[in-house]
Design a protein around this nucleic acid. Structure first.
Lengths: 242, 242
DNA sequence: CTTAGTTCTGGTCAGAATGACACTAACTGG
DNA sequence: CCAGTTAGTGTCATTCTGACCAGAACTAAG
């Protein structure tokens, strides 16, 4: 027991940490559609030893918030997303049972099959890192700290922030088909969308243009590949990993 | 000179502070419409002594982030908004020339004529507190720290976040006329809106209902008073001041 | 008391955006 | 070459939006 009473613990200066919520699209046999998954790490120390938690760690004196989040994510899971966006700063007094902690949480959408090994290269054979469905109540109910609320807030933000073109290209990378974009929206909104109408609205935005190429290798008619061009978001809303 | 070199300063643990950006609607003779103003405080210490800065201060070990922001705002300006919303956490290494500083910034819209003296009671006769136009380049160009970027980001968020009904009621309080709501939107979007069309869209939302009362004392036809009912926003997006 | 001035409020109309859905095009696998 | 599946186009009715007209309701001036 590191501190004898609550009053003493509360006089400790607040500690600063960063965490990350990484969403990825994966097939879901249950619905037939794709759904959102996220990586968690098993805690090896008290408090909450053995329970699942968001990747994260302390903020070093020489790291910017973004660097700290990205480095920590890479070290614990092997993931290197292209962008991280700041989600929220959590600072309630009772977040951690041991000491006062302020966590600045970043989040991202990553693609499952990234050429840089972005999303799939979660440290293979490490039993302390695993992917879970983002809305699995079994998992959410047993997370460390207030990480359940953090994930639920990230999901809420995601669903309330969906704008055509701006979210999907971060998940899908350089070139993508319109059906892939639609899969992202269907997973986030958790409902089926009309392919024809979705295509119409997407094509009407100036931020998405044809590449002239087609995606071959599929089982059916090969779809066109598109590219995202646009600086829709504010710089702070989507920071590039150095 | 508190530290002999950069390397030494950077080994200091990051300090945690909170700041607030408070927007209020005020008459603007230049446009004839209302526009956004915000309170600034003059710094009495180095660094940036004598320059204007956002209200703010260190995070105490016993204050939640929200409490720290609200208390600090009250102590320095006398302002007590009903709600504060978290804007962003700023943590670049070179934000402050003296030591590593992470600032968690809250923001709010307040009404000018609040019955609790919310917005007008800025410590009278204190020459170190004053209101400025939020887009005055003269002022923005001479702020302390990175406070210019913070204000510009807050304005960007405000303009990109305007949804009917959810923003205005925080600025206007319990009961309001539709013209008052329109003034808010005109100030935020910086353009005139058609009164009749604005009324139509606003009435079509379920979150705004008639009170049956009218606002008397005006110079012309007395307008109906309306009330906001709805929990549109996520709890974290609009935290109540205790 | 009358009238001018201003705002509030409801209405119309044309054009744009949206949802439902039929239909054609293009590929793979047997 | 045919069946099956996905890609992509076109159409139609409905809803939403912006521009604008006009009457209602009040105050202030004379």
């Amino acid at each position: 027991m590191p501190f004898s009473n609550v009053a003493e613990r509360r006089e400790q200066p607040p500690a600063l940490a960063v965490s990350t919520v990484i969403f990825s699209l994966r097939d879901d046999e249950r619905t037939g559609r794709k759904s959102l998954w996220l990586p968690l790490v098993r805690r090896t120390r008290e408090p909450f030893r053995g329970q699942w938690a968001l990747p994260g760690g302390p903020l070093g004196p020489r790291d910017s918030l973004l660097d700290a989040a990205a480095n920590n994510l890479r070290d614990t899971t092997g993931l290197v997303p292209r962008y991280l966006e700041q989600l929220y700063a959590f600072g309630d007094l009772d977040r951690s049972p041991t000491r006062r902690m302020v966590s600045i949480v970043y989040w991202a959408l990553v693609r499952e099959d990234d050429p840089h090994g972005t999303a799939t290269s979660v440290l293979v054979d490490d039993p302390n890192v695993a992917w879970f469905r983002a809305d699995d109540p079994e998992v959410l109910g047993n997370l460390a700290f207030d990480h359940r609320q953090i994930i639920e807030y990230a999901l809420w933000r995601l669903r309330n922030k969906v704008e055509y073109g701006s979210i999907a290209h971060r998940l899908l990378g350089e070139r993508f088909t319109l059906a892939q974009v639609r899969e992202v929206y269907e997973a986030v909104l958790d409902r089926a969308l009309d392919p024809a109408n979705f295509r119409r609205t997407l094509r009407s935005t100036p931020d998405i243009e044809e590449t002239g190429e087609f995606l071959s290798g599929g089982k059916h008619r090969p779809p066109r590949l598109y590219r995202y061009t646009g600086s829709t978001t504010h710089p702070l809303e989507s920071e590039n990993i150095s």
